[in-house]
Structures are given as structure tokens and as C-alpha cells.
């Protein structure tokens, strides 16, 4: 990668700076280009949903933001600061582990398969990182964890291991665990895809509550079009590693402009 880095600002200034900015971001595995020069801004407090056919690169967007994947070109900024790069002698160079660790504190993520730690109870899952990463005392972390487990409606399952919880309950613990780190940006990667239909509602209700009561910036990948339409401030339709079309839910669902958007929406509504 011999990209000219001087075209990227060292940091984003101003009161209108976005919470997240993807600038010209490219990601490929060998010859396969997953994301192609992606530009995407997410404002503070905004809920943006990414939809699109499988293989369109939508999950990769979240995984790059969580630093689970490295990028091949471009820069990602979080809260004005570069995430994937850092400043050295006035130019941007790829971020080292220390910089990434510092920046990661801004971001939380919920996974399709929950990824709860199976050998820890619900509350231990929520306390682990606050105690050992943020340096909270066990008492503080426990209070915070209990509060969040209550928020997701699991005050009665605090001491259960994940194996004893239903999928919906596990995913709610995972949301509480991510919130316990007080991230500025929260990512939801197909959080309802692995759930039985009858428990999807308990998870979407928690997300609804977060949107209405908290000023979190959220990015969500989902296949649930109804939920996306109801809850999002903006929807981006991905196609082959690029944003094919974006707009408010009503614009995108009510009056799609592009042929591919219409095709995709027709296909998913027929499936329902």
C-alpha cells in the first residue's frame, strides 16, 4: 500500500464533525475487493442501518470499525481522530497496537452469535472488561452491570451461565456487556439472525429503548427490513462493496431511485 496520505486530514475539527467517517476506505482479500473506496459519515446520535445482499460487504464495515479487520486503503475517523492511523511527524501512519487500544474504547459491538464468555455468568460477562480495562472497582462494575442487566430486563438471570439462557437472553446480556464499556458508538452485527423468530422481539425492544432513551451513535447490519425502517435515521444499501443508495427509511423504502435497490427490496418483500 503506497497511498499518498497527505490528502487525509490529521484530525477532523469543527462542531459538525461526524462521530464516524469512512474516507475512501478499501478492503480486499487477495483479488476479491470487499469494499471499494467507501465514503460514509455517521453523525453523533444517529442510527444508521446497513442493508444489502449477502457478500455486499456490509458486515465488513462494522468489523473494520471494531478493528477486527485491517483496511487496505483510506482512513477511518472516530470522534474526529483517526482510528486506523495515527499521527507521526505530521503525517498519518498505520496505527500501532497502543493507538488502536486507546481508540477502541470508543466502540462497542454485539455479534450475530453473541460471543458471550461461556465460563462466566451474565454479570461476570458484564464486569470483566470494566474491571480489567477501565479499572473500575468490582463493586462499581457490579453496580453498573446490574443496572444494565435490569435495563435489558434480565435482573433475574444475573448469576446464570450463558448455557442456561435462551438465545434472546444471551443476546441481551451481550448488549449489556457492550454498554458497560460506555462506548460512543455501538455496532450491531446481524444480532437477530441467529435467533428463533419468537424471541427476536425481546432483542429489538432493547434496541428500540436504546434509540429512544440514549444518545448513542449506532450502526446496524440487519435483514429485518421492517425493524430497520421503523428505527433508523438513515439506511444505506450496499451493493458490491459500495453504497448503491442511501436515504431516510421513507425515501429508500417508499421511493427507491436505483434499479438495484428496487430489485433488492422486491426480493426481500417476496421472501416475507
Amino acid at each position: 500500500m503506497n497511498e499518498d496520505m497527505s490528502k487525509y486530514p490529521l484530525r477532523l475539527e469543527g462542531s459538525d464533525k461526524p462521530m464516524v467517517r469512512f474516507m475512501n476506505v478499501t478492503k480486499s482479500y487477495g483479488d476479491l475487493v470487499v469494499l471499494d473506496s467507501l465514503d460514509l459519515d455517521v453523525a453523533e446520535g444517529e442510527m444508521v442501518t446497513v442493508i444489502g445482499p449477502s457478500g455486499s460487504g456490509k458486515t465488513t464495515v462494522l468489523r473494520m470499525l471494531m478493528t477486527l479487520e485491517t483496511i487496505n486503503g483510506g482512513v477511518i475517523y472516530v470522534d474526529g481522530e483517526p482510528l486506523t492511523h495515527m499521527e507521526k511527524n505530521g503525517v498519518l501512519v498505520p496505527a500501532d497496537a497502543k493507538h488502536m487500544r486507546r481508540m477502541r474504547a470508543n466502540i462497542g459491538m454485539c455479534f450475530q452469535h453473541f460471543n458471550l464468555f461461556p465460563h462466566m455468568t451474565a454479570i461476570e460477562n458484564c464486569m470483566e472488561a470494566p474491571v480489567h480495562v477501565l479499572g473500575l472497582t468490582r463493586k462499581e462494575a457490579r453496580e453498573r452491570g446490574l443496572e444494565l442487566l435490569a435495563l435489558v430486563g434480565l435482573e433475574e438471570k444475573v448469576d446464570e451461565h450463558p448455557a442456561r439462557l435462551s438465545g434472546g437472553q444471551q443476546q441481551r446480556v451481550a448488549i449489556a456487556r457492550a454498554l458497560a464499556m460506555r462506548p460512543k458508538v455501538l455496532l450491531f452485527d446481524e444480532v437477530t439472525s441467529a435467533l428463533d423468530p419468537e424471541v427476536i422481539g425481546e432483542v429489538t425492544n432493547v434496541i428500540r429503548k436504546l434509540v429512544s432513551e440514549h444518545n448513542l451513535t449506532m450502526l446496524m447490519v440487519t435483514h429485518q427490513m421492517g425493524f430497520a425502517r421503523e428505527i433508523s435515521d438513515r439506511i444505506c444499501l450496499f451493493y458490491r462493496g459500495q453504497i448503491e443508495e442511501q436515504g431516510t427509511p421513507d425515501e429508500l423504502f417508499g421511493n427507491p431511485q436505483r434499479e438495484r435497490t428496487q430489485q433488492f427490496l422486491r426480493a426481500v418483500t417476496e421472501a416475507m
Binding site: 471494531m66 477486527l68 487500544r101 455479534f111 480495562v133
Partner: peptide, 15 residues
């Protein structure tokens, strides 16, 4: 150990 466990640990910023 499933890959998701490593990813969750990264997402929680564990050392």
C-alpha cells in the same frame, strides 16, 4: 476456542 471469543475480547478492549 471459537474465533468469536477472540473477537469479543477485542471488542471489549481486553489486553
Amino acid at each position: 476456542v471459537p474465533r468469536g471469543q477472540w473477537e469479543a475480547a477485542t471488542a471489549l478492549n481486553l489486553s
